[in-house]
Amino acid sequence: MLKQFINSTIVKSTVPFSNLLISRVGTAQGGASPNICLVESSCSRSFHSSAPRSKEKDRKYYVQTSLPRDEGTEGERSIGIDRAHRRKDIFPDENTPDLIFDGLKFKNLPIMNIRVTKNNTILSLSDAKGVVKLLRSCGMEGFKNARKGTNIAAQAAGITIGKKALEIGVSSVRINVRGLGPGRLASIKGLEMTGLNIVSITDSTRCSETPPRPRKQRKI
């Protein structure tokens, strides 16, 4: 009865990438009469006996082929031919705080603080002392959930706050950007589109080599 059972069972092998599989199966009585089963595999995919293995492969393929995330760091890896960063006059010096822009000294100009994260962008206009006058974020623009973390949402927020700033009589601002994310360049572009005069761009991303212990790594 056992022999019949083995004969009627199609033996599957877990060896992948093989069209012709030969398995040798012995009976329970010491392998006295071995049966040889020929199994032809018709599918070209690799065969796994457990489902999660194939899922893992799909996931890896998806991660490898997906586009890199936009972090607003355009120009990071580029090799400048014109060497714009070699110009001396684009960097502030000891006289810069007292330079006059639009009737105000540089140190008294209003500040547009842009807080960029992976999932949102928050813009706030403050005066030189840091008192907030206007605030606008991608969520307030009507973008919800994952759409907040896009460059389109950041640009819309930038356009809105730029127009409001012009309405309350602010025409020249210093920009202070913090963080990396899709809204980093897009929000600046939105501000520029409204006709707001952007005097300078400052980065104040908080960055420490030895921060307090961060959260554990994501398991992807």
Partner: peptide
């Protein structure tokens, strides 16, 4: 602040200034 990590915008070229910040 506004001296370190700062690039002044010249000739209204905001995009170039932002790229210089990123590059540095």
């Amino acid at each position: 602040k506004f001296i370190a990590r700062t690039v002044l915008v010249k000739d209204g070229n905001v995009d170039a200034a932002a790229k210089v910040v990123n590059k540095l």
